[in-house]
């Protein structure tokens, strides 16, 4: 019994973290029409920065500073490379792919120079074991989940109740019209890219102490899964991403208890693939 309780708890935690990642992708797609392949690299950057800054700023300080840096970087990159020019979506895809490669290699060089290794262990910032029956659950994961849900709530408020959220929805729904009524579309787009990047960075900073290591390639696996979640949730839809993130996380965690972890992941991906086939616009998307 306690096994299932622990598994469900873990699925909930990961669901929230996946949602954080997929939402960033989804927001960026909504505003820019770009599938951001650099998302995994931005996530990795968040984890790396928070690991590097933790000794000076404390972990909690780095949790604020690292995503901010990643977000600002995202803003800058978007202004530089993904600016105003309306272009073929595939071209933008390749630009983000190039950004991914560069960030990944810069991280590799940084790690190699500072530690001489490509992977580095991350210490848990706190150790609060929560006893459930004869087993333990790491308290830090619950804290990470709480942080993630607070940010998700904040995002929801931002989206629905602020002027910025209003501008954002306008840009998402009709870029031409938004420009005509005087909305500074490029700046809104860049700020959304920055926000999405910051979300990825935050997810990375939160996940680092859970997976216990940072490496330049840690973003690739995460990128693929979050792309699928974002697409199946409906690109540009917040509720859809959240729902699919939970679907993915719960099916993966529960299947892992029944079969081997690889087949569990393949099964969870298959579920997502079915959603895409049955509803090409995604769960929360409008056609």
């Amino acid at each position: 019994m306690e096994l299932w309780a622990l598994t469900l708890l873990n699925a909930l935690v990961w669901g929230l973290l996946w949602a954080l990642l997929a939402l960033g992708l989804s927001l960026i797609y909504g505003a820019l029409g770009v599938l951001n392949l650099a998302h995994g690299a931005l996530y990795m950057l968040g984890a790396l920065l928070s690991w590097a800054l933790a000794p000076t700023l404390s972990f909690w300080g780095s949790l604020v500073v690292a995503p901010t840096i990643v977000g600002l970087m995202g803003f800058g990159l978007a202004r530089l490379l993904l600016d105003t020019r309306e272009r073929d979506p595939l071209t933008s895809l390749l630009i983000t792919f190039g950004i991914m490669l560069i960030l990944q290699q810069l991280a590799a060089i940084f790690l190699q120079m500072t530690t001489g290794e490509l992977r580095h262990a991350v210490a848990a910032p706190v150790r609060w074991p929560i006893a459930i029956g004869a087993r333990f659950y790491e308290g830090y994961r619950v804290v990470a989940a709480l942080v993630a849900s607070a940010v998700l709530l904040g995002l929801w408020a931002l989206w629905g109740w602020t002027r910025w959220g209003c501008l954002l929805r306008a840009v998402r729904d009709n870029r031409e019209l938004a420009r005509v009524v005087g909305i500074p579309v490029p700046r809104v787009q860049a700020s959304v890219f920055g926000l999405g990047a910051a979300l990825a960075g935050l997810a990375g900073a939160l996940v680092g102490p859970i997976t216990r290591e940072v490496s330049p390639t840690m973003g690739i696996e995460v990128l693929l899964v979050s792309v699928f979640i974002a697409v199946a949730g409906g690109l540009g839809s917040l509720g859809g991403s959240l729902a699919v993130a939970f679907l993915y996380s719960f099916s993966e965690n529960l299947l892992t208890m029944l079969t081997d972890p690889l087949l569990a992941r393949a099964g969870a991906l298959l579920a997502i693939g079915l959603i895409v086939l049955v509803r090409p616009q995604g769960l929360g998307g409008t056609s």
């Binding site: 622990l6 598994t7 990961w14 996940v207 997976t211 840690m218 965690n253 972890p261 992941r265």
Partner: peptide, 15 residues
């Protein structure tokens, strides 16, 4: 049996 490369979260394997 744990896949190689090992999954990033080993929690469910410990269970």
């Amino acid at each position: 049996a744990v896949p190689f490369p090992a999954p990033s979260d080993l929690f469910s394997i410990m269970q």
